[in-house]
Write a protein that binds this DNA or RNA. Structure first.
Lengths: 123, 123
DNA sequence: CAGGAATATGCCTGTCAAGGCATATTCTGG
DNA sequence: CCAGAATATGCCTTGACAGGCATATTCCTG
């Protein structure tokens, strides 16, 4: 996840990924389309490859790079819990604010703290 | 999109976001939970804020930060075209490879290549 | 108004990553 | 084996950025 995000955070890399979304392509074609230098594209592809975002298939002296679905699926899965809150959770801010304003000394115990304890974030 | 990805690419920032997914929190609480130094947390929150990922609500001297849905929704939307290809498109690699092997001077039949003259970096 | 809590900012430093460039590497055909 | 195409690597330089720390700022309370 972290790896996926880091890899996609680079603009050129993101473009490469978007380019590969259509179909697999050789390095030269990517160089051509994005107007980048060949070595740099190779390096970006390396990073993407290390992140598992692309895979390569040699054809003669060419290397055809194609997208791998898994990392993006994981990103999709990561978004899942957020999707769930988009509807009702976000506007509970008011409640929290009100709660904070009406706080007193007894809150030192943090009664709502232990309920946060059980999270289970997997990334 | 780019901004969102860059912001989330930083591990601590990602953790902050995941922390805020549960509910809005003040800076101090984040500092406490993640074991980071306060100034650094403030800086990360600043970045997240600039990226539109969080918003702040002052309550006395406290600043309550909460998640904003939009950027994540956009990320979700960005994934949409990929979701579509996860089923059938990715294994068309064989076809492309076969195609490349059997071609001599026949370039790709894509026609959107004339607009790749752009040098800028785009979004 | 003073004191103090909660945050934000400024400055400095070390690290790391991206671009540029030359060159190595791999593969094909003759 | 040689030449050449397609791609990868190594080295160097520079800029962005995260962390550390001191300090400024804001706001509440007595």
């Amino acid at each position: 996840m972290q790896a996926t995000l880091s890899a996609l955070a680079e603009p050129n890399r993101l473009q490469i990924v978007e380019l590969l979304r259509r179909k697999p392509r050789g390095v030269g074609e990517i160089v051509d389309r994005l107007g980048l230098r060949q070595p740099q594209v190779s390096k970006h592809l390396r990073v993407l490859s290390d992140a598992g975002l692309v895979e390569v298939h040699p054809v003669a002296q060419q290397r055809i790079y194609s997208l791998r679905a898994q990392p993006l699926k994981e990103l999709d899965a990561w978004l899942e819990p957020y999707r769930r809150t988009w509807d009702d959770r976000f506007d509970r801010l008011d409640g929290v604010l009100r709660d904070l304003k009406g706080k007193d000394k007894d809150k030192d115990k943090d009664k709502d703290k232990d309920k946060d304890k059980r999270d289970g974030h997997g990334t």
